[in-house]
Amino acid sequence: MTVKTMAEFMAEGKQPEILFWVGSAGSYDDRAKKITKAFVKILNAANVDFAVLGQEESSTGDVAKRAGNEFLFQMQAVMNIELLNGYEIKKIVTCDPHSYNCIKNEYPSLGGVYEVYHHTQYIKELISSGRLSIDADTYKGKRITFHDPCYLGRANSEYDAPRDILVKTKANLVEMKRHKRTALCCGAGGAQMFKEPEKGDKDVNILRTEDALETKPNIIATGCPYCNTMMTDGVKNKEKEDEIAVLDVAELIANSLDN
């Protein structure tokens, strides 16, 4: 698939409509790469003129910050901001709620002020402006439960965008007991993704998977690459991977575009 970089736009003397911030997971993690590609499919379907930073992109520093390494975070932030400001970036969209939160809320006081969207918010905008239509019946009648990512939901009070677009797939949206502001974390946040959990009687992702299984879903929808990993592992642990798919909202939408 052809994806243009900011450097290429620059060389042509053009500005893209949006910058797609792919994020480290979206760039390297095999599962998350599929989400990245699904979102690109959506952007292409809506004829969005977008760019990525490609080899120039670097970790936002979000995970370092939450691990307590403010130095590393600010080093990363300042480097990224220099790059983004150099390209005169105005609008950023990302599939990672952690990058979304970090760039939107923590970059401004370091000199990086942008309009930042989580991909579910951007997809919602594409649909409501008529640029994207979801006509396929791929998920019609399927039971889908949406797991709120902490950094989209509680952290930024965005509970509606992912649900609003999931409804467009004509799926039957079912809520877990803990949802929206009381949603349970998948267990990956705060740098937990990169370390072994402390001693306890259960892993957080297992508990969250049990929450999801209670709704008897066909699909568990996520909006974060880390949540996706955690929930996928949880479903495998429960030996339900043949019955229940864990898919990002972007994938569900990409599979529901007009064929």
Partner: peptide, 15 residues
């Protein structure tokens, strides 16, 4: 520039 030991030059390989 990533939490995993991958080369930054490979960031766009997914495409």
């Amino acid at each position: 520039g990533a939490p995993w030991p991958y080369n930054q030059m490979d960031r766009l390989n997914w495409a």
